[in-house]
Design a protein around this nucleic acid. Structure first.
Lengths: 149, 149
DNA sequence: CTAGAAGTTGGAGTGCGCTCTAAGTCAACA
DNA sequence: TGTTGACTTAGAGCGCACTCCAACTTCTAG
């Protein structure tokens, strides 16, 4: 049974702090874990599995309120499996949409970086032919265009 | 010039609220926009482009503090282009890592959903052959650990 | 000339997710 | 037996990103 980890060991392994682990337990995200003499927490392997799953939910931005709802269902036994599956399916839909949104924005950022790169080229050649005031581009949006009233 | 939008029109188009638009201006994320008679804000096309870019940064979870730093560089002219590019490159690295983390977690969630699906199958057949108590299955259920007195 | 709608400002309040403090308990060691 | 130090608890505090309020000004319609 090396599956009896102290709170600090769990913190180290999960990247959570001891504060956060206690907080999660307090708010019902983690069911009361076993205790050693003196009331110190001892985490079993099954606790670790659950915490890792919680971290999956957190990574995918599930709010704590929903995690609490999920944890409550889980505590209520196998009869809630369909509900839990539905929750995860709905969440997964959101997650996939968010990943796609981030992917698109990342692409836009990449394009902006490229734009800056070429802008740096022109600015560099500007300063060769015209050293002095390098400030009449107001905004590096799409290539050029700068007029507005 | 239909590029003179009121704050409500901008709110409608960007999905931000008027409150948030003013807040962004107050904290320097958006440079002071043009004003109509009576001091009402009028957003030009270039403002819209910038706001859309800000939304890209927000979508990719750049904290407001960094956006402020970026906006400040932008306001300081073309000489800051290399700094801005570097900021975006570093941010993009983070973003790609986050996307990958989310992708992996999404996969784990998908697996969990499949697991639940098959679990629902076995629970259903249980209740055919053994109608009554459908609650002695293995899996992410805590075994023992209750309290310590 | 009002009335009402829509804006303006600075500042206060909110919700989330931790993060830390204060006071106390306990086990182990000198 | 006394001290150390890691742990415990309830509750307060914090940083972020908004979100709303109160009081005021201005524009438009009737």
């Amino acid at each position: 049974m090396e599956s009896q980890l102290s709170i600090d060991e769990v913190a180290k392994r999960t990247g959570l702090t001891a504060y956060t682990l206690r907080y999660y337990e307090r708010i019902g995200l983690i069911a009361p874990v076993g205790r050693a003499a003196g009331g110190q927490r001892r985490y079993a392997a099954s606790d670790m599995t659950w915490i890792e799953f919680l971290l999956r939910l957190r990574t995918t931005h599930m709010p704590i309120g929903k995690m609490q709802a999920f944890a409550k269902l889980r505590g209520a036994g196998d009869s809630t499996v369909p509900d839990r599956r539905q929750m995860l399916e709905e969440h997964l839909t959101d997650v996939l949409a968010e990943i796609e949104a981030m992917r698109q924005s990342a692409e836009a950022l990449q394009a902006k970086i490229e734009h800056y790169r070429s802008l740096e080229q022109s600015l560099a050649s500007d300063s060769i032919s015209d050293e002095g005031h390098a400030n009449e581009h107001r905004e590096p949006l799409r290539t050029r265009t700068r007029q507005t009233a």
